[in-house]
Design a protein around this nucleic acid. Sequence first.
DNA 1: CTGAAAGCGCTTACAG
DNA 2: CTGAAAGCGCTTACAG
Lengths: 334, 334
Amino acid sequence: MRHSLKHVAERAGVSVKTVSNVVNGYPHIRPETRARVEAAIAALDYRPNLSARNLRQGRTGIIALAVPELDNPYFAELTRHIVTAAATHGWTVLVDHTDGDPAREREVAAGIRDHLVDGLIFSPLALTGAELDGTTPTVLLGERVDVVDGLGPADHVAVDNVAAAREATAHLAGAGRRRIAALGVQHTAEGVSARLRLAGYQAALAAAGLPADPQLLAPAERWHRADGAAGIRALLDAGVAFDAVFAFNDTLALGALRALHDAGLRVPADVAVAGFDGIDDGRFSIPTLTTVEPDIERLARLAVDLLAERITGSSQRPPQECLVPHRLTVRESA
Amino acid sequence: MRHSLKHVAERAGVSVKTVSNVVNGYPHIRPETRARVEAAIAALDYRPNLSARNLRQGRTGIIALAVPELDNPYFAELTRHIVTAAATHGWTVLVDHTDGDPAREREVAAGIRDHLVDGLIFSPLALTGAELDGTTPTVLLGERVDVVDGLGPADHVAVDNVAAAREATAHLAGAGRRRIAALGVQHTAEGVSARLRLAGYQAALAAAGLPADPQLLAPAERWHRADGAAGIRALLDAGVAFDAVFAFNDTLALGALRALHDAGLRVPADVAVAGFDGIDDGRFSIPTLTTVEPDIERLARLAVDLLAERITGSSQRPPQECLVPHRLTVRESA
DNA sequence: CTGAAAGCGCTTACAG
DNA sequence: CTGAAAGCGCTTACAG
């Protein structure tokens, strides 16, 4: 059976207030009182009822993390870092995946968890800032949703997608590649990342004096390995000539490596490949993957710290937009 | 501002009980009353306070999932399936990773979340059943913790590790391999999976009439790509001859592919490789990975359904042990 | 330093 | 079909 404060108080011969003080580490308690209470707590195996505490305090100690795909290595690594960072604030993390489904995202944004979470870290695909609930402290991950002044009450942590994509593409061009394909192009409203990375790619081509051939744009509705492989196969089937691929994420790039291998093309001799994310897989793939990787640990820590400021109300600053650093990691594939 | 039942009741001119009835879908309510209440709910943007509901009902609608590593592809995929299955019961999932750290695991097992979760799905590395809290409905994932009769109150869902490992190894032997290395061997108390998979490996060798050469056992403290690569390198450096590798999981196998490649060995021509798990990576690696894969979706559904029975108390059956099916998927590597 | 009491927002017998 | 009231287990002014 579960015991309450009252039981402990009775057993220790004190009031519930005193027990509460002990439980919450209130300092000014007579040592012998504390000892008696602690003995009673141990004897009864008392543990506080968090629902009651939350009801009273209006806080739950839980933050929610909503990502499009839990089993995407990038988000899996991100999740781990968020969980770790949250632990330093004493929070546990409730993880949700939205599948990038607008309806699921809206549920999350509408605060479907209601008073259950103290805050939300949200990596939306489809959502615009306007749809955010506004009452729950929120930090947005990924690119800024492009509603002018639509940021609402949410802070924002992102990678500089344009710059990172430009660097990756420039690396390919700098290695003498002239026909660089872009893999992962999306034309849907959701594809904010895709649009920004495409812009970076195009900027790099322009800077290198390379023409922008629309034939080199390989669309991919999702960014899984299978989509990367399919995108490259489509390019090859269409007879498009290319000597490099900039994939908009690493799983696409891994799929590309496979499709190129199947076609008998050598990487990087025939085709150089660069990705985006820096997931662990790319360190061991054959060939290993050149990639531009955001400092994901920093991103996680930043997101959690910003959320902490909002939740504790320790800062009334206006919504903030932060960019985390990235760096190009050159390996075998390019 | 957040509104309560009372506010809604006042606005609709009814008692809180009636509002509660409407919110909870109680059927016998006069249509016009219901309409008035619903209008008030909409007008005030009322949403129930879950902490209060939980306090009253003793349930939270949250289940916890504790896995050793969130960014291990196997657990990431598992987590996704658990989240999906939980959603069909109206539960959200609080995800924790323990890092296989006994202290963290004990925290989880001790019900550190206290009254916060209705149940727990737990994939322990180090823990024995004896350490389970016993008050929170729990389903254990992975192999049965080997305390005799120590299952306690927990149900159990697992893969038949011995059989699956035996099949993978038998496949290698059946292809004519005579010197099959085992990659991922662990001698620690935590390595229950490792011990069972080793047993399956040994059984297959015996059945094939192959000698069990201890030189062929490659230990790996963790089961990441890096460990797999290191294990193979150690074997090669030691001058051990082998023509096949059975890796105790797919990430080990992927690391092995890389190390073999670095050593100039062809897979499968020189060395055949088989893994365990069936993660997505293995469909696209070069070469693609032969593996024995448990039906992870079924495993997730089963775990959640068993937990549901415990939580609702709809069944008082004794703790149950379930094995989910697996199958060997032959691809290029073996 | 400690106690008695109110109240957080729900649900649930108990009446009617 | 609906209402008034108690109580889930905490924390927090308010006293002393």
